[in-house]
Nucleic acid binder design. Structure first.
Lengths: 344, 344
DNA sequence: CTGAAAGCGCTTACAG
DNA sequence: CTGAAAGCGCTTACAG
């Protein structure tokens, strides 16, 4: 059962391969091929079960119709929500998606390898992690279509889509402040990413706007620390901060550490201590009730990222909707859905 | 920054493309190319940063060095544990892995499409679901290397690796029976898969061996039912079965339904009711303490599946270990790790 | 309206 | 020991 080739179809239909190719690629009228001939060729192709060999097409055209999605880790909810959406959307444009993850462990290596050996993909959607700057620059230099998701590097001029982090934290803070909380702590991590800066900034701004002090209320964990160390830091932070009423955790990972700390201290949510979490990855459902959560719309982010990529690939069919804010080469977009769970 | 081609290397090194190809593919001595020449060519290739174009190689050789992994769903722990392991193992043999899922919703469609459009992959690892028989037969007919994982179709003669379901259930049953339980229920689903049959058989055998009755103790849910319906069925089963002491859930999905039912009935595990679960997919950690769990070693299954596939691809480097039981065309292997949690 | 020809980047008999 | 040539299956100027 050999695969039928374009040549086979040509032979059976009694025409030249070129003609078959034109017809099958919808260039029949453009090439002024008679409708009769065209439909006859179509017919033959169908009855013979012809499918073009994508490898040959790719070699000839230089396009693979494949997109590369690079995420931090392939296990986890973020990837799960994302992959489905991106795969579906990509399919609508005739693209397939392959995944790679940087899996923090083999940081330096894997991502490079992945990129190099994958230069066959037509475009990239990347969730950037610290240290990827160089790789991304290379892609840009290579004129590869790239969209960053969930974060970006201020120094690199590349389209990206992420939630409005500042606004998100402002909303969360406004909420707890309005509820009457005053002594609000903030737990973050020393990751050199813009979204972390924005979140901290928003915390500080909202506190000062409310005339509240932030002295000794910010805990910055080390990215390198392991989970247990993190939990201990948070635990002692909570225990040793006088009159602490609420804590804002800047990422969902930090939130999980916080949850464990609160558990160990025997505190009850939200009565003893209120908790607000900035949910990076739409994993809200992991949290128990009694937590205020800034939730990121993973689906919207993913869809938008794909749209931006398609635009670069010349398939920019943004239809009626053009309300994507485009700063010079940059795209920032995102809404924050505010989920209210604190019942104080 | 154009990609350098093999031809470029040849030109720079002052030899023919063939020679370069031979050297780079490690056929230098086989072709009796002088070591001096060979190392010079290697040198040029390295300094020029040459990487063969996999698309061209694939077109020419008919091999893609890509494996297809088809799972039920891409979100979920099973996929997460699997993907990592299979990807790593495959890399050791020089293969990449692409994923697809059947995502029960678009059952009939997607899987077909996935297969057809992917005929470029060199081999398949498939977690079969009911209805895939035809597709798998086609692959076999096409002489494509295929390994089934986690289940198999008795009618199709293809290598597969799965846990010993019968043995697993026997162990679990032996345990609870030994603990003194007598009225043990069994909850299963009307899925037409061999492993479900094996599990039920083992339940019946162990009950009869212990001289216990199974009348009205087996609940078979409909596969088509949604979650809520399932929970209600299980709930009423538990409530309406007199003197029920323990329930064996034949899959982890059923186990989750059971958990919810027990919760709704306000029962306490394992005091009011003991629970045993056959964990399809190594997601044991999802269960609370107090549950007896038959656990599948996902890692071992995945590794074995890959080995079997490599064997078909002629890379059978099974080293010293050859204790894979091979029945005619069939492979059954697996161990069950028995995790004891019931403290009665 | 349609066909012959070149070429994408490789590998591999074949011929020296 | 090494090179010229064919060919994997397509697409696309180019020439009628």
């Amino acid at each position: 059962m050999k695969r039928v080739s374009l040549k086979d179809i040509a032979r059976i239909a009694g025409v030249s391969p070129s003609t078959v190719s034109f017809v099958l690629n919808g260039k029949a009228k453009q090439m002024r091929i008679s409708e009769t001939l065209a439909s006859r060729i179509m017919e033959v192709a169908k009855t013979e079960g012809y499918h073009p060999n994508p490898v040959a097409v790719s070699l000839r055209t230089g396009k693979s119709q494949i997109l590369g999605l690079i995420v931090e880790t392939i296990s986890g909810n973020f990837f799960a929500s994302l992959s489905r959406i991106i795969e579906d959307e990509a399919a609508r444009f005739g693209y397939k998606v392959v995944y790679t993850s940087t899996e923090n462990n083999r940081q330096k290596g894997k991502e490079l390898i992945g990129m190099l050996s994958q230069r066959q993909v037509d475009g990239y959607i990347i969730t950037p992690t610290p240290g990827m700057e160089q790789d991304i620059k290379e892609l840009i230099a290579d004129n590869k279509p790239v969209v960053l998701m969930d974060s970006y590097f201020p120094g690199i001029d590349v389209p990206h889509v992420l939630v409005n982090n500042y606004e998100g934290v402002m909303k969360g803070m406004a909420h707890v402040i309005e509820k009457g909380y005053r002594r609000i702590g903030f737990v973050t991590v020393d990751l050199d990413l813009v979204q972390m800066e924005d979140r901290l900034k928003a915390y500080q701004d909202s506190m000062s706007k409310a005339g509240l002090d932030t002295d000794n209320l910010v805990l910055t964990l080390k990215y390198e620390e392991d989970k247990e160390q993190g939990i201990e830091s948070v635990t002692s932070f909570i225990k040793n901060t006088p009159d602490l009423e609420a804590v804002f955790f800047a990422t969902n990972y930090l939130g999980l550490l916080g949850l464990e700390s609160i558990h160990r201290l025997g505190l009850k949510l939200p009565d003893d201590l209120a908790m607000i979490v900035f949910d990076d990855h739409d994993v809200f459902r992991l949290y128990p009730p009694g937590i205020t959560c800034i939730r990121q719309p993973a689906e919207e982010i993913a869809k938008t990222a794909l749209e931006l990529l398609m635009e670069q690939l010349g398939k920019g069919n943004n239809g009626g909707e053009s309300k994507i804010e485009i700063s010079p080469g940059l795209v920032i977009r995102g809404t924050t859905e505010y989920v209210q769970k604190v019942n104080k």
